[in-house]
Design a protein around this nucleic acid. Structure first.
Length: 956
RNA sequence: CCACCCAUAGCUCAAAAGCAGAGCAGCCGGCUGAUAACCGGCAGACCUUGGCGCGAUACCAAGUGGGUGGACCA
């Protein structure tokens, strides 16, 4: 009989599974979308609105699986775009791949090395190409699995010939504006391989160097100029661990604020930092340092010595004193040997003082015969071979220089010095710093046609861009202001060549028109054309500028462009060409905050120079994923498996990962831990169950047939719609502000509190027990139908799979629909939904409800009461209290709201609300076996005895 | 060493110059008509110090801790 009655209830029913089983089921939804060509369908749908939102994709590097950090980036982009497309924007999104660069070249090279293979540059490039291509395929799969929706058919690759041609054309704009110049710059140099090395190709190892203290004589005339004593020979003493660079010494750097002292050693005087004098004397093994007194009258600030021209120990050349902040008194003499061709900071100092970037060492590591290097040094190598290292023998050059210094009586002291020193990862020999010719972009250059320098224009354009968060603006401004001239050449194979030619004397020839002509050829033939074809073919049909030698006399350069120009040209190669129906400038760039110095900046420079404006209207940045210990996830050892996107998806499913990402304030670093992801799973399940419950209550509801108008809706349902309107406004504002975590907070709270704990719970009675077509039941279903529509669309950008799944069940009662959620429009709340009168009343009543629950709890604990429906409540409150009237007004609604069997409102004596709880039984009530409410009496029906209300329901 | 950002409950996030609010987790219970679900109750937080304010977790300053970028080192 109980079962019989149960069958008369309208119990909720849905096929929408409670268990998401995302890991298994998401792929089939992806396949379904693919079949529908959903991306294209969305673009078609929004093509008529005239609104477009272009997010330009920053290309990930194609040398590995998609990292969870990359997943974060792509997911944020996807959420943004899906929201915008629901808002009616056409959202062409062309994904990109950054294919060139050292990491790939290195991986390929290490592979070849393991097999002991030698290949040509063109073969090398083909191997790199294949390597990149295979990762593009893998990453595409992984991004798709994550739910990233994009124009995959129109993807851009920086290694595609057409793209490479656009990189080269961008470069031609640099040349055209006369910004490109050639200059020497010190680079890491491997002597055995005769090649420049990148930072990543360096290994640091302990090295035994010969430290030397070298005396630079101060001529009498110079001493006089600077009020230094000249009755005895005076020397400035420098200290260095690389004796072989002494022939390239062009200056001595002092710190402007450090005190220097002239010390009398008896036969001669030396000038060193006062603080380091004892250490210098000790190194020089002075018999009795205590006798040496620095002339107290001769303590002098470094700044006062600027310009003092000392004499190089064995080359007839002055070595002037210059000033530099990096000079320390930690070690050495406080006077730093400066060879601008052999050190990064020496180089910068050299630039500041307009010194020659002098490098008398050839590519083979041997001293050149340049007319300055002493004849007995010419041809001697600076290379320290592996054998030398094993024998702890200094390089020939070091030995020769020591001999020269000793012979010139310039060697005050020498000592072994063990320190970490860069070595070539392939030859295992110490590298040298060696200045070689490089191509630069002069960022401060102006011309008649471009009176504003790139830097000025860049700074101006930064102000016109929206930076999210706002501190991004000062970050990039600082980076743009501080950036020195851009060194754009690299001595690599896997990259885009710099289109420059050289004659037999290594004179460079470069011209914008020629570059563009070559670019056109590369666009069809690929870059290997540059490496394989003879110059005559490369330049066939190209009109050479006046003054150029004939093609036969020219050799194509082997330098490649800095890879930042590759990705930095994407706006030109993609947006300007309207690839995938995009447009320039982009509405948004969205990348990690490290890109202020990377892609945001390189894109800005190329765009400023080539097109005179920023390539983006807004730039949004996010932080990085860190482990619980606050360390970057890649360095944080908390996960056994590599932190790849796929590994996390395999455990949680894409929607949970997306939910987690959306729930975080991504302007900060984002913490990832098992606990946090489990939290996210829990949050996800809550939302899923809420959607599921709504679907189940709508099982017999056909909106076209059953929906009521707002005017016909019940109070509680109107209240729920009011809350929904508030949620929608909040979520919309949060989406617009890119504050997705606030969307999640709002929706989670709405589902858990407003719906699950209050609205849905209260609704059960009327939805289950009333007759199918009862207006009150239809009222609630109408409201739920509206609420579901809002909720599922708010969630759609984040829970792409689940929202569509729920949408499919709502519209077709099956798992899939051919009209997916992502093709719908953003919901609109009817203005009538906002009803503050009802909101105020119900809010007051809900407070009473909380009091009632509080009062029920002790009874429950005492075992007197089970479910709240067993309770009969008496409320007593002073009639002067405004609440009294509210309670009276809604008297008939109270049992339902409190989910109790009966409520009596009395005029109370005290000022406070008094709640009395009794079991229905105590009042002599009987329990209706159908709706479980306690009522004064039951009626007989064909289904047995039930309460009058149920009897009524059973008639229909 | 410099610049910038951040600091609220175990976790993820709110708010507001005037009693700091949620979700998840926790603890105790209920229900068995959302059931690997659901409901109720409980408990739990403003980094430290100073300043201006009637009043500061919020504004200012210093410190501490964490992060990012740079400088330096190589």
């Amino acid at each position: 009989m109980a079962q019989d009655l149960k069958d008369t209830l309208q119990l909720p029913k849905t096929d929408f599974p409670m268990r998401a089983n995302l890991v298994q089921r998401e792929p089939s939804r992806l396949a379904h979308w693919e079949k529908l060509d959903l991306y294209a369908a969305i673009q078609r749908k929004n093509a008529v609105t005239g609104k477009t939102f272009v997010l330009h994709d920053g290309p990930p590097f194609t040398n590995g699986d998609v990292h969870i950090g990359t997943a974060l980036n792509k997911t944020l982009k996807d959420i943004t775009l899906r929201y915008k497309s629901l808002r009616g924007y056409r959202t062409p999104y062309v994904p990109g791949w950054d294919c060139h660069g050292l990491p790939i070249e290195q991986k390929v090279m290490r592979g070849l090395q393991a097999e002991n293979k030698q290949v040509s540059t063109a073969e090398m490039r083909s191997l790199c190409d294949a390597f990149a291509e295979s990762w593009i395929a893998t990453q595409t799969k992984q991004f798709k699995r994550l739910g990233v929706q994009a124009d995959w058919k129109n993807e851009y690759k920086t290694k595609a010939p057409a793209y490479e041609a656009d990189i080269i054309r961008t470069f031609s704009a640099f040349v055209e504006k006369n910004l490109v110049y050639r200059s020497k710059k010190p680079v890491y140099w491997s002597i055995p391989f005769e090649t420049a090395l990148a930072e990543a190709e360096i290994e640091y190892k302990d090295h035994i160097s010969t430290a030397i203290w070298v005396k630079f004589a101060v001529p009498v005339t110079e001493a006089a100029k600077f009020n230094l004593p000249s009755d005895k020979p005076l020397f400035v003493v420098i200290w260095t661990t690389t004796p072989w660079t002494i022939p390239a010494n062009l200056a001595i750097a002092l710190h402007p604020e450090v005190d220097y002292v002239v010390a009398d050693l008896g036969a001669e005087r030396i000038l060193v930092a006062q603080a380091l004098l004892p250490a210098v004397l000790e190194a020089a093994k002075h018999p009795d340092p205590s006798l040496v007194i620095g002339h107290s009258s001769l303590v002098i600030k470094g700044a006062k010595l600027e310009g003092l021209a000392t004499q190089h120990p064995f080359i007839n050349r002055a070595s002037p004193v210059v000033l530099a902040d990096y000079v320390t008194t930690d070690s050495g003499t406080g006077a730093v040997h400066t060879a601008p061709g052999h050190g990064a900071e020496d180089y910068l100092t050299g630039l500041r003082y307009k010194l020659d970037i002098y490098c008398p060492v050839g590519a083979d590591g041997r001293y050149l015969d340049d007319g300055q290097v002493p004849a007995d040094l010419v041809g001697i190598t600076t290379l320290e071979t592996v054998e030398d290292l094993a024998a702890k023998k200094p390089s020939p050059a070091n030995l020769a220089v020591l001999k020269k210094l000793a012979g010139a009586n310039a060697l005050l002291a020498k000592a072994k010095y063990v320190h970490s020193y860069p070595h070539c990862w392939r030859s295992k020999t110490p590298i040298i710093f060696r200045a070689v010719d490089q191509w630069f972009v002069g960022l401060d250059r102006t011309s008649d046609t471009s009176p504003a320098s790139p830097r000025d224009t860049a700074l101006k354009s930064i102000a016109g861009v929206q930076w999210v968060p706002t501190w991004g603006e000062s970050r990039i401004r600082g980076a743009v202001e501080a950036r020195p001239d851009w060194c754009i050449s690299r001595q690599r194979s896997w990259g885009v060549p710099i289109i420059a030619f050289y004659d037999a004397d290594k004179n460079a020839f470069i011209d914008a028109e020629v570059i563009r002509a070559v670019a056109d050829k590369i666009a069809t033939k690929g870059t290997n054309f540059w490496y394989d074809a003879p110059t005559t073919e490369i330049l066939a049909g190209v009109t050479l500028p006046a003054g150029w030698p004939a093609p036969v006399a020219l050799t194509p350069g082997r330098d490649t462009l800095d890879v930042w120009i590759d990705s930095g040209s994407s706006h030109a190669a993609v947006l300007r060409n309207q690839q995938g129906a995009t447009q320039w400038p982009a509405d948004l760039y969205l990348e990690g905050s490290d890109q202020h110095r990377g892609w945001f900046q390189s894109s800005l420079w190329t765009s400023i120079i080539a097109f005179n404006g920023a390539p983006y209207k807004a730039v949004l940045t996010h932080g990085f994923i860190v482990g619980e210990d606050g360390k970057k996830i890649s360095k944080s050892g908390q996960y056994e498996k590599p932190p790849t996107s796929d590994n996390f998806i395999a455990q949680y499913g894409a929607d949970v990962i997306r939910f987690w990402i959306a729930s975080q304030d991504f302007t900060q670093d984002i913490t990832l831990s098992e606990k946090i992801l489990n939290n996210a799973s829990e949050g996800y399940r809550n939302l899923r169950n809420t959607l599921r419950y709504q679907l189940s209550t709508l099982c017999d509801f056909d909106p076209a047939r059953d929906a009521l108008s707002y005017e016909q809706l019940d109070t509680l349902d109107r209240w729920a719609l009011h809350q929904t309107a508030k949620l929608l406004a909040e979520a919309t504002a949060a989406y617009d502000a890119y504050e997705y975590h606030r969307v999640i907070q709002a929706v989670s709270s709405f589902c858990a509190v407003t719906l699950s704990a209050v609205y849905h719970d209260i609704l059960k009675d009327r939805l289950y027990t009333l007759g199918t077509t009862n207006p009150l039941r239809r009222s609630s279903q109408t409201a739920i139908h509206h609420i579901f529509g809002v909720l599922v669309k708010i969630l759609a950008p984040v829970l792409t799979f689940t929202a569509d799944e729920a949408w499919a069940y709502a519209t077709t009662k099956t798992e899939f629909t051919n009209d997916p959620i992502h093709l719908q429009d953003w919901p609109v709340a009817d203005t009538a939904w906002t009803n503050s009168g009802i909101e105020a009343d119900v809010a007051a009543l809900l407070k009473v409800r909380a009091k009632v629950n509080e009062a029920i709890e002790p009874q429950r604990a005492a075992g007197k009461l089970g479910k709240s429906l067993d309770a009969v409540i008496t409320l007593a409150i002073g009639s002067s209290d405004p609440l009294f009237n509210v309670l009276q007004k809604h008297r008939d609604f109270l049992p339902e709201l409190f989910i109790v069997s009966h409520v009596t409102v009395q005029e109370g004596a005290g000022p406070n609300l008094e709640v009395t709880v009794r079991h229905g039984e105590e009042l002599g009530y009987v329990r209706c076996p159908r709706c479980w409410r306690w009522v004064p009496s039951l009626e007989a029906t064909s289904h047995g005895e039930v309460c009058p209300r149920c009897a009524e329901a059973l008639k229909t």
